[in-house]
Simulated assay, not measured.
Amino acid sequence: MAKCVIPVLLSWSLVACNTGTVTEDTSLQSAAWQWQLPTNFPVPFVPADNPMTTAKVELGRHLFYDLRLSGNGTQACGTCHLQEKAFTDGLAVAKGSTGEFHPRNSQHLANVVYNTTLTWANFSLSSLERQMEVPMFGEDPIELGINDKNKEEVLQRFVQDSQYQQLFSQAFPEQNQAINYANIIKAIASFQRALISGNSRYDQSLTGKATLTASEIRGKDLFFGEKAECFHCHGSFNFNDQVRHAGSRIVETPFHNTGLFNIGGTGEFPFPNRGIFELSGKAEDMGKFRASSLRNIAVTAPYMHDGSIATLEAVLDFYAAGGRNITEGIHAGDGRKNPFKSELVTRIDLNEQEKADIVAFLKTLTDDEFLTNPKFANPFTQAKQP
């Protein structure tokens, strides 16, 4: 895969050993942080108050996987975001550190640096730093469960750890007391920004390093063509329609009602999963959610904001039907007739072969290198996890 290497900032560099310990690599202390980007990927946007450094990314990786970053010490960010599943968890909805279920499905983190907004349905969360406050300190639902009663105890777990004393001092060398929540958030956000995925078979085919099968090519043509028209919501280099990068001049934040529900024919979605309506209160925003990137989609089942569709094949059936018709139960209603449904979601006349071809193409978006890259992996062995 052709890549452009873009130096960003001189920084420290760390090497994580598989024993869970960290040693300083003095030979790399003067190395620059570099974006390893495919040639068709733009330079990511990074906020000026949290520049990327190698040391900060490495600190963020440790914090991302550390169970101690939860009130009761039982859960980490990595609990709900597993690398082998493109940083999802395989569950219909996420489960927090206290056992409380989140109403929504854990989103994958591949190329999250390019997302304009960061959750399924919150137009106000547009930075990774701001979003990180939600799982850490949120009370409804409880995720990591850090609160006023335990936040000092949680912080002391890192203050008293000699390994983290070193990690923080290398990531924030200008600060005398670097171990604080602001820096924890900055470090995790930096690690998340480093999660670049762009070496799937589809990407390789663009540079002549891989060849798609006849079925995959037919699926690609349907995906980007006028029959299926998937490209309207998934046509960017990141296969979504909310993209921000360093060169962005206009930043759009579309959300879509896809006809997943239409309770009682009223257009209603189940509370509290009613899309950006929960924030705006506008009737036309009922059931509007962000279109997720389709990269690595084959490993991120189940699908939709509530994890209610189990397979890619079922997702294709749903979109081909122009929505979902629920015939019984408390959520009964014909989503195909939802009055707030996007005009982009209409019935598509696809035969079984065409559906299979589109699924075959979607599977070419799996980036095996990303799913196994040791730079993104848990630095703690099971035996050494604090």
Rank of each mutant, 00 (worst) to 15 (best):
P272L: 08
S236V: 11
E278K: 11
H234T: 07
G259E: 01
R295M: 05
N325V: 06
G323H: 15
I330A: 08
H232N: 03
R274D: 15
N240A: 11
K282M: 00
R249E: 00
A283P: 01
D241N: 14
E313I: 00
Y303R: 07
Q242M: 12
A301N: 14
H305W: 14
S292H: 15
E328A: 15
D285C: 14
G235H: 14
P254A: 00
N238V: 14
L316I: 14
F239Q: 12
N273T: 10
E313C: 02
A291K: 01
M286V: 10
G323S: 14
L260H: 05
H245S: 08
G267H: 09
A314E: 13
L279N: 08
R244P: 02
P302G: 07
H305G: 09
F255N: 00
I326N: 01
H234C: 11
A314I: 06
G275Y: 13
L294M: 15
I250P: 07
N238E: 11
N296V: 03
S292F: 09
G259C: 00
E313F: 00
I276S: 02
I309F: 10
E284T: 09
G281E: 02
A283K: 04
F239A: 13
H232M: 00
G265H: 00
Y319E: 03
P270R: 14
H305M: 08
I326A: 01
Q242I: 10
E284R: 07
D241C: 13
N257V: 02
M286W: 03
S236H: 15
E284Q: 11
H234A: 03
N238H: 03
G307Y: 12
T258Y: 14
E268C: 01
A332N: 06
G275M: 14
K288F: 01
S248D: 02
A246K: 04
G275E: 07
F277S: 06
L312A: 10
A291I: 03
N262C: 00
E278H: 07
F255W: 12
S236Y: 06
A332F: 00
H305P: 14
V315T: 01
Y303K: 02
C233Q: 11
R249G: 01
H256D: 03
T266Q: 09
D306M: 13
S308H: 05
F261I: 04
F318A: 09
N238I: 14
G322V: 03
G322I: 06
H234K: 05
L279A: 10
F277R: 11
Y303E: 06
A301C: 02
C233E: 09
E268F: 02
E252S: 08
A298P: 01
G247D: 10
L294H: 15
D241P: 06
N325E: 13
N325P: 06
A320M: 15
I309R: 12
R324P: 13
I297E: 05
I250S: 07
V243G: 00
I330F: 05
L316V: 15
H331T: 02
A283N: 07
I326V: 12
G275F: 13
K282E: 04
Y319S: 08
L316E: 01
S292K: 11
A332Y: 01
T300F: 12
F237M: 10
A246Q: 15
H245L: 02
I276G: 00
T300P: 02
G264T: 03
A320P: 14
L260R: 14
S280H: 13
Y303C: 02
F271V: 08
N257H: 08
P254I: 03
V315Y: 05
A301V: 04
K282V: 03
